[in-house]
């Protein structure tokens, strides 16, 4: 199968996943659409980044950072908690596959593969965490400074 067709199918499936989780978390109306589309954008970005970055860990970090920007911005526009957009958009990045193979290696007692997979799963999770933490802290910092300046000028 052509790699582009494959990528498009994968993005579509990831988007269905994001929409699905948005429904399970009882998001409704306009927010449901925006939350689901977050998955579409973030996974497309993650695939496009493949052109420049070979490492999956770096791509996960960058697209998690993108998700955080998307969620923080929309949360302020829609006046709703950031979680609403953060969690659904990050869903396609959840390393479910990697976690599964870790379990499988444990079952088959392939301990060498088990440890390397387990570390890789943790690495991916940490990359996601760092992406989110970096942006969220930055946003907090910026808004704290802005509020301080506003108070001074008022």
């Amino acid at each position: 199968m052509n790699i582009i067709v494959k990528s498009i199918i994968q993005v579509l499936m990831g988007t269905i996943g994001s929409f699905g989780f948005s429904i399970l978390y009882n998001i409704r109306g306009k927010k449901l659409i925006l939350a689901g589309l977050g998955g579409l954008f973030s996974w497309s970005l993650c695939l496009v980044l493949q052109i420049w970055f070979e490492s999956e860990v770096i791509r996960y970090f960058l697209s998690a950072a993108f998700v955080a920007v998307y969620a923080e911005a929309l949360a302020r526009i829609m006046k709703t908690p950031t979680t609403t957009f953060l969690v659904p958009a990050i869903i396609p990045h959840v390393p479910g596959g990697s976690l599964y193979y870790t379990m499988k290696f444990a079952l088959n007692q392939q301990w060498y593969d088990f440890f390397s997979r387990a570390f890789y799963t943790v690495e991916l999770a940490l990359a996601l965490a760092m992406g989110i933490i970096a942006i969220s802290s930055l946003v907090k910092f910026i808004f704290a400074v802005i509020n301080k300046l506003k108070k001074k000028s008022a």
């Binding site: 978390y25 009882n26 998001i27 409704r28 927010k31 006046k79 709703t80 908690p81 979680t83 609403t84």
Partner: peptide, 11 residues
């Protein structure tokens, strides 16, 4: 987890 409820409580 119920993000609509959270949103309403927030408001």
């Amino acid at each position: 987890t119920d993000l609509t409820k959270l949103d309403k409580l927030n408001q």
